[in-house]
């Protein structure tokens, strides 16, 4: 028996068509809320004081991207990423999320998804950033959260980033930005 087959027997079953079980998805959303200040208060939040993102003068007028990015959106984006990738290592992501959920018990805290936002942030600051031992493994969840957030077009304008399909100089030779990739 491999660790993979053992864990897959132990972990809760995801709903059909999904790769994360409900609890894992919830953990991901809650850690995203802790790691991403903008997302925690909605994308409409302004930039932190004294730091403004200037808008490049090269943006094509495009469809409005109104509407905030929520922690749940980030979790959805990560799950879609895992579904598209069909990674044989996706089970490790599930194991990682279980670890993120339950390791706070080592500090006498509640499971992560039941902690307040403030406590989750303090946990990140106290344990994830230096990343010693099992906390170093938990800290890898940062990459998933950043993918789920910054891969979402709703965050582009906030970060003064202009995707290729909206750059003026490509207006006459648009790439396939507007096309959906066949599932």
């Amino acid at each position: 028996m491999t660790l993979q087959s053992f864990l897959l027997r132990l972990l809760p079953l995801p709903q059909p068509g999904r790769v994360l079980a409900d609890g894992e998805w919830r953990t991901l959303a809650r850690i995203a809320e802790a790691l991403l200040p903008t997302v925690a208060c909605g994308v409409a939040c302004g930039a932190p004081s004294g730091v403004s993102g200037s808008v490049p003068p090269t943006v094509l007028p495009g469809p409005s991207r109104e509407g905030g990015l929520s922690p749940e959106d980030v979790a959805d984006n990560v799950e879609r990423f895992l579904i598209r990738g069909r990674s044989k290592r996706a089970w490790r992501v599930r194991g990682l999320l279980q670890l993120v959920e339950w390791t706070p018990l080592l500090r006498g805290e509640r499971p992560l998804s039941r902690m307040t936002l403030d406590r989750r942030r303090r946990l990140v600051e106290a344990r994830y950033i230096d990343g010693r031992g099992v906390w170093g493994i938990c800290a890898k969840v940062r990459y998933l959260v950043l993918m789920g957030a910054y891969g979402d077009a709703r965050l582009h304008a906030t970060m003064s980033y202009v995707p290729v399909s909206q750059r003026v100089r490509f207006a006459q030779a648009r790439p396939n930005g507007a096309q959906a990739v066949a599932p």
Binding site: L82, R84, R89
Partner: peptide, 30 residues
């Protein structure tokens, strides 16, 4: 087999399709 016409400028769509293990491959020491 993704042709250019099936590619777009969304990293979160393209990376899992183009990269080994959806870009999640690390060494055993993580």
């Amino acid at each position: 087999y993704l042709r250019a016409a099936q590619m777009n400028d969304s990293e979160i769509e393209m990376i899992p399709r183009l990269y080994k293990d959806g870009g999640l491959h690390m060494n055993s020491g993580l």
